[in-house]
Design a binder for these strands. Structure first.
Lengths: 125, 125
DNA sequence: TTGTTATATAACTCATATATTATATAACAA
DNA sequence: TTGTTATATAATATATGAGTTATATAACAA
């Protein structure tokens, strides 16, 4: 029996996780986040170390902002960026499900191993 | 002053995080993982709830396996899949950096707020 | 005002990803 | 053996994504 009874249409209406994971899938964007982990920075400060044009970086920043991974303020002509907490929280929540499942599997493995010692015994770890 | 002195070529030589985040960016694949969190399942068992063809699901499973998110055994003609722990661990490690930075920012905010009470006090930038 | 700096947007190219249908392979059942 | 089930692969169409150059806008400095 399946965990769901009817055909499942994948809902694209939870764009946040899509956007966040997609944003993190790009190494340039992860490098930008690593940079911002050191502190706030303007677009040009971020762009400088990269072998890439400023428009390319601007697009990456837009993606990161859309994913809730960074925030930007306006300071004259500059747009300093910094890390935002929201997306990380959401990711952690979702990963929690997998972590739990994996730890349950681990417990089950312990059961199996324990069962090999004392067969026919059902044990909880 | 920049945190790195010369132009930075983004290294594509850490394919694991790329692959893992990219795998998680797809809602179908996240739904598959959610299914597997309930326990091992064969390809057809996984495919059934989805409004999508079997080859499409097979490809998704290949992506998930390539990302280290699932493992598969061979059992006759069936290929049961289950969650794998490796990718999650790696993600957690990487996210750790962001979490740390965010909590430091939070502490700094506390400093700022504290500084507002007692002005002229030295602020750590 | 004029020129310069900081950033964003548009138009375009090229590569990659996702889905489909059709088909191949391998195990199983009769 | 033959037919059926379980899964994978190939060929293909279409969409999306990341980079480029050129240009627009807005703030700043002189």
């Amino acid at each position: 029996m399946s965990y769901i009874t009817k055909k499942m249409k994948v809902h694209r209406n939870v764009p946040t996780l899509d956007a966040t994971f997609a944003a993190l899938a790009d190494p340039t964007r992860r490098a930008i986040l690593a940079r911002l982990a050191l502190g706030e920075a303007t677009v040009m400060e971020i762009a400088n170390p990269f072998d890439m044009t400023q428009p390319a970086i601007s697009r990456h920043l837009k993606v990161l902002e859309g994913a809730g991974l960074i925030e930007r303020r306006i300071e004259g002509a500059k747009r300093p960026c910094r890390l935002a907490p929201t997306a990380i929280t959401e990711i952690d929540q979702w990963l929690g499900m997998l972590r739990q499942a994996l730890s349950r599997n681990y417990d089950r493995l312990d059961d199996v191993l324990a069962g090999m010692q004392t067969p026919k015994r059902r044990k909880k770890k």
